[in-house]
């Protein structure tokens, strides 16, 4: 599927997306597009709905209204096999969520083998390649409990990449890390961005948002308040809430 979509073409289209938990409206009529090759950073104050937004993109949160098209398919429609869609959408979590009962290598191999995308041997080779790229080949046979936070997150990224996704979602990937480990994870993400991976990153790392992303989205009150190139968002914020937010974080 992905090969049909060229750089700059729409990969994900969000139309009038809304989500409420009970009476609490968290996402309020959001519409936007993600094009192939985009590196989008999503910023905003805590509780603004940015995590709910990114988690809606692979339906970890069920939207209460609107549609999400992935490579042309409306994934919110009944009868769509969301599992097949999720194979193409990688996700990296704040809490890493490595499978604690298996080694690093098995973590990476599990999904491609069980979903019959690769043989065990292929998955093993691929896992070692990916661990090489995230600099953790020597940890292949360790269990997650033996890794530092930064190492865990690098493995989590490798695990997502093993599925060869068309887009990667990062939900505050460095927020649970000790400060000295933030850099190693951001570097891997930077590499991915340079290699052309389409990425959506919910982050508090304003430096990363500014330098690496091609677009920055500011969400507040469940709405996209600003959506522009990072230079504009950071140096010439039009929205007043954005100005307040930037003042408080920079």
């Amino acid at each position: 599927m992905s090969d049909n979509i060229k750089n700059g073409e729409v990969l994900i289209r969000v139309e009038n997306l809304s989500k409420s938990f009970g009476d609490n409206l968290v996402l309020d009529d959001i519409s936007m597009e993600i094009k192939k090759g985009d590196v989008i950073s999503v910023i905003g104050p805590s509780g603004c709905g940015k995590s709910t937004f990114i988690r809606s993109l692979n339906l970890l949160e069920e939207p209460t209204g609107g549609s999400i098209f992935f490579e042309g398919t409306d994934i919110t429609e009944r009868g769509v096999d969301i599992r097949q869609i999720r194979e193409k959408i990688g996700m990296v979590f704040q809490q890493f969520n490595l499978f604690d009962n298996m080694t690093v290598k098995k973590n990476i191999m599990l999904a491609p083998v069980k979903l019959k995308l690769m043989t065990k041997e292929q998955a093993q080779t691929r896992a070692m390649e990916l661990l090489e790229t995230v600099g953790l080949a020597d940890k292949a046979d360790n269990y997650p409990s033996q890794l530092s936070g930064g190492q865990k997150q690098r493995v989590a990224i490798a695990r997502s990449l093993a599925m060869e996704p068309d887009v990667m979602l990062f939900d505050e990937p460095t927020s649970a890390l000790d400060p000295e480990m933030v850099g190693e994870v951001l570097n891997i993400m930077k590499d991915l961005a340079t290699k052309g991976m389409t990425m959506v990153v919910v982050t508090h790392e304003m430096g990363f948002a500014r330098e690496v992303s091609t677009r920055t989205i500011f969400i507040d009150g469940g709405k996209i308040q600003e959506d522009d190139v990072p230079e504009k968002v950071f140096t010439d914020p039009k929205n007043e809430r954005l100005r307040d937010f930037l003042k408080s974080v920079l």
Binding site: Q84, R86, N97, L110, R159, S160
Partner: peptide, 8 residues
């Protein structure tokens, strides 16, 4: 959630 996100 991690399992789900991988398509399992």
């Amino acid at each position: 959630e991690a399992a789900k996100s991988l398509g399992l």
